[in-house]
């Protein structure tokens, strides 16, 4: 079974040289720590940065320079700053190649829910609805089951949707799966020490298992 950093490390392998990538808040942010040397990617922050760098050194933080999670950051060489309309322009027009974000639920046809729990939590969708409606390639980083032990990979989402038929790939603490255009979660890889049986038990939506399922290489 993977921890949060393990999930981030596995997702980092999906990030290819030359990509422009938007990382959501939470586990997706950790992906930046595991991008291999020699793989050049540009991180987009939807508040208006291409070329987001690491956190500043102590004492060098700048209130005018934050990422989409409102954390102080720095700019890498070659970075650019733009306004919010242009930021979502490059997302909508699919110039941003890859979106990695978290989810509360994903359905077997690729629907995603991650912005609201009726009666409990209303924080808002931020840029998530724009990202999932437009991105060509969406990877979801999430826990396979919730704290109550219930599957978050479902036949259909119970929570209010963020977007429909958009999720392409999912990486959880147990597995890597892709969402087939015809519906269903196809099991691609098992986390170290996790059996196909355990993944089946943790997946309420339609799970497709074809042949031998390899263990992830991290």
């Amino acid at each position: 079974m993977l921890d949060k950093n393990g999930i981030a490390k596995r997702i980092a392998k999906e990030v290819k040289d030359g990509m422009y990538v938007n990382l959501g808040i939470g586990i997706p942010t950790l992906v930046a720590n595991y991008i291999p040397d020699g793989v050049n990617v540009v991180l987009q922050s939807e508040n208006g940065i291409l070329g987001t760098g690491p956190f500043p050194f102590e004492g060098e933080e700048d209130a005018d320079l934050i990422n989409a999670g409102k954390q102080t950051v720095t700019l890498l060489k070659g970075a650019s700053i733009f306004d919010s309309a242009m930021s979502f322009g490059m997302i909508r027009s699919q110039k941003v190649n890859l979106t990695i974000l978290g989810a509360m639920e994903v359905s077997e046809n690729g629907d995603i829910a991650n912005w609201k729990i009726p009666g409990k939590m209303v924080k808002g969708m931020g840029g998530a609805m724009d990202l999932v409606a437009s991105a060509k390639n969406i990877i979801v980083a999430m826990q396979h089951v919730n704290k109550a032990g219930e599957s978050k990979l479902l036949p259909q989402c119970d929570l209010p949707l963020t977007g429909i038929k958009c999720v392409k790939k999912i990486v959880t603490e147990l597995a890597v799966l892709d969402v087939l255009p015809t519906g269903g979660f196809r099991l691609l890889e098992r986390a170290p020490g996790v059996s196909v049986e355990e993944i089946k038990n943790a997946t309420l939506g339609k799970l497709i298992v074809e042949g031998e399922i390899p263990e992830m290489i991290l």
Binding site: E46, S84, A85, S87, M125, G127, D130
Partner: peptide, 23 residues
Amino acid sequence: PQGTLATRCLAAGYGMPVIYTPA
């Protein structure tokens, strides 16, 4: 959605009554 918010402002500044977005 955040992009909708930004673009609805832009539309006003550009003199266009509506926009279409997939968000």
